[in-house]
């Protein structure tokens, strides 16, 4: 899933300056699961914005709606009519969602209410962790299912740096050293020989930006 966090309210308020009729649009998929852009958050944010408007003596139209998925056009048809009534859409989807809406309704500004962080998963309550960077050349078969490209701060491919500290990473004692984890899991699986395998420099053009994928 895509993990994203809400921008600060002041930033959102600033972004919305000059617009009178705003659709706050949630996404029922990833950002709903990470509790930053679903139906509930749309309600809370719209209320906060109304309150801010009240304080500053404004009286703007703030509509609320959540689609099942912002990143697929077919899910956006249901907002066709609402879009006609507003002069801006505040999206609580990820950056893909914002762009999908903007591409579908190019005449109207679509503003990001979230900062998109990474592809990851929930780890424990209120904690999401990054797991994949979409490098285009998956090596999880060699690394005991732990992605060094993403989970090692430096993206090292050939083992731990000297900064590994009691199993934690040199940049943050809260984060596990990916290469210590890889070592331990390979050992458990009896596959330590994989640890000694040389990985050549990464092909940073495995996905040429912007990525495009066609099924043949």
């Amino acid at each position: 899933m895509i993990v994203a966090k809400q921008k600060d309210l002041e930033v959102i308020v600033g972004m919305l300056q000059g617009y009178e009729r705003i659709l706050v649009l949630g996404c029922g998929t990833c950002t709903a699961i990470c509790l930053t852009g679903g139906d509930r958050e749309v309600g809370i944010l719209a209320s906060s914005l109304r309150l801010a408007d009240k304080v500053s003596g404004k009286n703007r139209l703030l509509k609320e709606h959540t689609v099942e998925r912002q990143c697929e056009w077919e899910f956006l048809d249901e907002i066709n009519d609402q879009v006609k009534e507003v002069d801006a859409i505040l999206s609580l989807g990820c950056g893909v969602g914002v762009q999908a809406i903007s591409e579908r309704f190019p005449d109207i500004p679509v503003l990001p209410g979230l900062d998109t962080l990474f592809m990851g998963m929930p780890q424990e309550e209120s904690v999401w962790v990054e797991r994949c960077s979409g490098c285009g050349n998956c090596i999880l078969d060699k690394t005991a299912g732990i992605c060094p490209v993403t989970r090692c701060t430096k993206g090292l491919l050939n083992g731990p740096c000297g900064g590994t500290n009691n199993g934690k990473c040199e940049v943050d004692p809260e984060k596990d050293c990916a290469w210590t984890l890889i070592y331990q899991r390979l050992e458990k699986q009896g596959k330590l020989e994989l640890f000694d395998e040389y990985h050549p420099p990464r092909n940073f053009q495995a996905v040429v930006r912007p990525g495009r994928f066609t099924i043949k």
Partner: peptide, 12 residues
């Protein structure tokens, strides 16, 4: 600490 992964890296 742990030392084993470092030794493998040394060998590499």
């Amino acid at each position: 600490n742990p030392i084993e992964p470092q030794l493998h890296k040394f060998k590499k």
